[in-house]
């Protein structure tokens, strides 16, 4: 569904991405984890068509990304800036749906349904600044869901909320992505999170950045914040990802499974 091949990007003479290749199958939830500043956001922005990478190719459904694809949505990290503070939650969610050619009433219905899915049916008429950070991020997720993208990109979506909220949001994403069958690329610097949420974890090196490893996560689709994190497979995988993020080399046992 998503094919990133040999992606290269430099800001001026500063080479950030140095040949990154990532593939995601239809409906897969792929986590990309890497150290801060390694170019994760740059990668996401290239996929979204927000910047034109210096080299390499991005295909979505076999078509190269030239403009911003219309079947794609993004959830940004900074919740305080991802919603429009001059609109209510419902209007924030409904506004992009004009592009889907829905009339006012249908946009409203779709927005309410999406807010309901993220557990915010009651907050539809609230403004972003009347909500907690976690709620705001839920609204951004609802906005993405209502848009019905086939590819969902998330850039450290839970990076600036507290731990409890973060776990709730992780479960929310797992649930809705499975429900809608969306292909999802979730970017994070949190090792635990990448293993807990992902069907696969892609580990990036420091910049100039390449793919250090591509690890399948054999934990099944139904996960539980406490039980899953206690599984031996989870603990081993987390240790492996942690080693790789710190610049270690892949352990053969984990790779064998691939």
């Amino acid at each position: 569904m998503l094919e990133i091949t040999d992606l290269v990007h430099s800001y001026g003479s500063h080479r950030v991405l140095d040949g990154v290749s990532i593939r995601a199958a239809e409906g897969e939830l792929v986590c990309v984890v890497g150290p801060s500043g390694c170019g994760k956001s740059t990668l996401l922005r290239s996929v979204a068509g927000l910047i034109r990478p210096t080299g390499g190719r991005v295909l979505i459904d076999g078509r190269p990304v030239e403009r911003i694809p219309d079947n794609l949505a993004v959830v940004f990290q900074d919740y305080s800036r991802s919603l429009y503070p001059w609109m209510t939650a419902a209007n924030n969610v409904a506004l992009p749906l004009r592009r889907r050619g829905l009339d006012r009433r249908r946009r409203r219905e779709a927005a309410m349904a999406a807010l309901d899915q993220v557990g915010l049916a009651d907050a539809a008429e609230k403004y972003p600044w009347e909500m907690s950070g976690g709620m705001q991020q839920r609204v951004s997720i609802a906005r993405a869901l209502a848009y019905r993208p086939s590819l969902l990109l998330m850039d450290e979506p839970f990076g600036s909320v507290d731990a409890q909220t973060r776990e709730d949001l992780e479960d929310l994403v797992l649930r809705v992505c499975a429900h809608h069958g969306m292909t999802t690329l979730l970017i994070t610097h949190d090792i635990d999170e990448s293993v807990y949420v992902g069907d696969r974890v892609i580990v990036l090196t420091r910049s100039p950045t390449r793919v250090a490893a591509d690890l399948p996560v054999d934990l099944g689709r139904s996960r539980d914040q406490i039980a899953t994190r206690q599984l031996g497979a989870f603990v081993r995988l987390r240790a492996e990802v942690g080693r790789l993020v710190r610049g270690g080399s892949p352990t053969p046992t984990v790779l064998e499974k691939h």
Binding site: L50, I68, F76, D78, R81, S82, P96, R99, Y147
Partner: peptide, 13 residues
Amino acid sequence: RQHLETARIFGFS
């Protein structure tokens, strides 16, 4: 910038 990028992502006219 993020407000503008959101508009681009969701294809605002």
